[in-house]
Design a protein around this nucleic acid. Structure first.
Length: 262
DNA sequence: ATGCCTAATGCAATTAGA
C-alpha cells in the first residue's frame, strides 16, 4: 500500500498537475494540503474521473485538506475533520479516515511565522493537540499513517543552509522539540528511516530558482505507527513534479509498506 | 533588513506562504 502527501498550493490552480501525477503514480491514498478553496470549489468530478474517491475540508482563501482514495478500496470512512482541543479553531488543517483497515491522517500544520508571536503560539498549541490525538492512536494499537505538510524541519540535514533557519518557526528549538516528542511516542519518520544520511528535500521556494539550486527543505513527512513500521518497504519524493510547468512549491512525497501483512 | 515568487481576493494592494 502506498500513501502519498502533496501540498498542492491551490487545488484549482494545480488540478492538471495533480491529475498527471495521480495517473503516473497511482497512490492508494493521497493526502492533499493547501487546497485554498471553499468546500464547494473542490474539483470532485475530475478526481472521481481519475478513479479516486475523496473526502475534503475546504476553506475560503487559505488552508484546506483532502484525502483521495483509489476507488478499488471503496469509500474512505471519515472519522475526524479538524483537530480536537480548541473549539475556537476554524482553520481547515486536519482530516482522518480509515482506508482498507489503515487509519490515515492528513494534516497541514501551521507555519508559525513570525516567531515569536501569536502565530507561533498557535503552531505550538496545534502540535500539542496533535500529540494528544497521535498518542491515542498509539494507545489503541491501530495501524496508522500520519502524513502531511508538517512545516517542521527536523534536523540541520533537512534544510539548505540550516544556519539561516535557526530563528524561523519551522526550525526553532521549540518546534524541533515538539517534533522529537511526537516521534518518541513511537512513530517512524519513513523517509529518514529509508535514507538515514541523504539530503532529501520536499519543498523548494519559488524565489531565486530554489529548485534548480536544490535549495530546499524537508518539511513534508509520513509517519508510520509501530504496528506498520516493521512493514515499511520504501519511501521517496516525486522530485521531478516540482520541476514542471506551473508547479506547487512542494513535491509529492510517499511511503510504501506491506499491507495487508502477509 | 528586504525583495526576490505565487496565489486568493477582487480589481489595487494586501495577506500569506516557508
Amino acid at each position: 500500500m502506498r500513501v502519498a502527501t502533496f501540498n498542492v498550493n491551490s487545488i484549482n490552480s494545480r488540478t492538471g498537475a495533480l491529475l498527471q501525477w495521480l495517473d503516473e503514480t497511482r497512490p492508494d491514498v493521497a493526502c492533499l494540503q493547501e487546497l485554498k478553496a471553499p468546500q464547494e470549489k473542490f474539483p470532485e468530478a475530475a478526481v472521481r474521473e481519475a478513479g479516486y474517491h475523496a473526502v475534503w475540508h475546504g476553506q475560503k482563501s487559505w488552508n484546506g485538506v483532502a484525502m483521495l482514495v483509489r476507488e478499488e478500496h471503496g469509500e474512505p470512512q471519515e472519522v475526524k475533520r479538524g483537530l480536537a482541543g480548541d473549539p475556537t479553531d476554524e482553520q481547515s488543517r486536519y482530516i482522518e479516515a480509515i482506508v482498507n483497515g489503515v487509519l490515515v491522517a492528513g494534516l497541514y500544520l501551521p507555519n508559525g511565522n513570525p516567531a515569536p508571536g501569536p502565530k507561533f503560539d498557535y503552531k505550538l498549541a496545534w502540535m500539542e493537540r496533535l500529540h494528544a490525538r497521535t498518542q491515542a492512536m498509539i494507545d489503541s494499537g491501530v495501524p496508522a499513517v500520519v502524513c502531511g505538510d508538517f512545516n517542521v524541519i527536523p534536523t540541520a540535514l533537512d534544510a539548505y543552509k540550516a544556519e539561516r533557519w535557526v530563528d524561523d518557526a519551522l526550525f526553532r528549538p521549540e518546534t524541533r522539540a515538539a517534533w522529537e516528542r511526537l516521534l518518541a511516542q513511537g512513530w517512524c519518520d519513513s523517509l529518514r528511516a529509508t535514507h538515514p544520511d541523504q539530503v532529501i528535500y520536499t519543498f523548494f521556494d519559488y524565489m531565486r530558482d530554489a529548485y534548480k539550486r536544490n535549495a530546499g527543505l524537508r518539511i513534508d513527512h509520513l509517519l508510520l505507527s509501530p504496528s506498520l513500521a516493521p512493514h515499511l518497504k520504501a519511501a521517496g519524493v516525486d522530485h521531478e513534479v516540482r520541476g514542471r510547468e506551473k508547479p506547487s512549491d512542494h513535491a509529492p512525497t510517499w511511503v510504501e509498506f506491506d499491507w495487508p501483512v502477509k
